[in-house]
């Protein structure tokens, strides 16, 4: 038993994820290997492992909630006009830069920085919709997509030019970073802040969509665009509002991520945008709870994947997961099945 366990643990190396299942199947020998001289000594033993697990879970949820904030923008826009707004990542990037300018130049408190970022992103997104997407609403599926890519390239270059180069800028520490210890887990202030802000914004969004008039109009429009406009809903206003809400969330997300990762650059929206879009599709595009679930799921998967030793494949984890999920549930976790109309 001991022998087999040693070999297994050695073979698994740093794959802590697999060890979770392993521990349940063979808890005694796992304990043995934790003792001095055991094969697991290098990674710190069992207690270390559980501490790691909970810690990584918290980190994953934090990362995931930032993905979720951005994914909401994708999912709402898609739900209403079936457009993949590839420039949404750039809105998030501009939010982060606005936050940076606010805290470094105007020396404001981070709450005001977040509000300012939201205020800048909202008109930007509305303008973007007016110029680049509205004229194309009735055309082919690919035309607005290409237009979105154009907007995305335009904004990236614009920010690079204004900033004077693509190298990353350091985001200063705006809040005292204390560490709270809760059982085996350590939270930093920024992490708590991200979790609180993200949940508040999401609750607020759910409330808006469920109980306000414009929220009802949004739901009606996403249900049936034509019928909604026939029922007297100003569809153009609804679309603008959707873009505005998505942009506000992305702007807030940008500042929070800037504070968490401490560094921002003009191309930061590309990979985060793609992953957030993945999260939206994973959860079922068009579904608001789906985007939240997808974002958090993706965050956890990414962090756990890295912890399990797939660190060099980090960028591929999100997409691998997405492909696997889509193959089994072709419209995402919470998506409704596509109806084939004959």
């Amino acid at each position: 038993m001991m022998m087999r366990c040693e070999i297994l643990t050695l073979a698994l190396g740093r794959s802590r994820l697999i060890l979770i299942f392993y521990r349940y199947s063979c808890s005694k020998c796992f304990y043995d290997s934790c003792r001095p001289g055991g094969a697991l000594k290098a990674i710190g033993g069992r207690c270390m492992f559980w501490q790691q697990f909970w810690q990584q879970l918290v980190n994953g949820v934090t990362l995931g909630s930032t993905y979720a904030l951005i994914a909401l923008g994708y999912t709402m826009v898609y739900g209403i006009i079936q457009l993949i707004n590839f420039a949404h990542g750039e809105v998030y990037m501009i939010g982060a830069f606005t936050g940076l300018i606010m805290v470094t130049v105007y020396k404001v408190n981070f709450i005001i920085a977040i509000l300012a970022a939201m205020l800048v992103c909202v008109p930007l997104a509305i303008l973007m919709e007016r110029i680049a997407y509205r004229p194309l609403r009735k055309s082919t599926r690919l035309a607005p997509l290409i237009s979105a890519l154009g907007v995305s390239i335009f904004l990236q270059t614009l920010v690079t030019l204004i900033k004077g180069g693509p190298n990353p800028l350091a985001f200063p520490q705006v809040i005292q970073d204390t560490v709270y210890v809760l059982g085996p887990v350590r939270f930093s202030t920024v992490q708590v802040l991200i979790l609180v802000m993200a949940s508040l914004l999401m609750v607020f969004l759910q409330f808006t969509v469920k109980y306000t008039k414009i929220g009802k109009a949004m739901r009606a429009t996403s249900e049936d665009y034509e019928a909604a406009s026939l029922m007297g809903i100003n569809v153009n206003r609804v679309v603008s509002f959707t873009f505005a809400v998505g942009a506000a969330l992305a702007g807030a997300g940008g500042v929070l991520v800037g504070m968490y990762f401490n560094s921002i650059h003009p191309f930061m929206g590309v990979s985060v945008g793609l992953k957030a879009f993945c999260a939206a599709v994973l959860g079922g595009i068009g579904s608001i709870p789906g985007a939240m679930l997808g974002g958090i799921f993706l965050g956890i998967a990414e962090v756990m994947g890295v912890a399990a030793g797939f660190d060099t494949y980090k960028e591929a984890i999100a997409f691998g997961l997405l492909i696997i999920v889509l193959l089994f549930k072709p419209t995402g976790l919470l998506g409704l099945p596509i109806q084939r109309k004959v």
């Binding site: 993945c278 591929a316 997409f319 492909i323 193959l327």
Partner: peptide
């Protein structure tokens, strides 16, 4: 497996495949 998907879902799957190939 993926051509069963339609429209944007196929698009995002191929995009994901592209990124995976690059990382590999």
């Amino acid at each position: 497996p993926s051509l069963r998907l339609t429209g944007d879902y196929l698009g995002i799957t191929t995009l994901g495949f592209g990124e995976i190939v690059r990382v590999v």
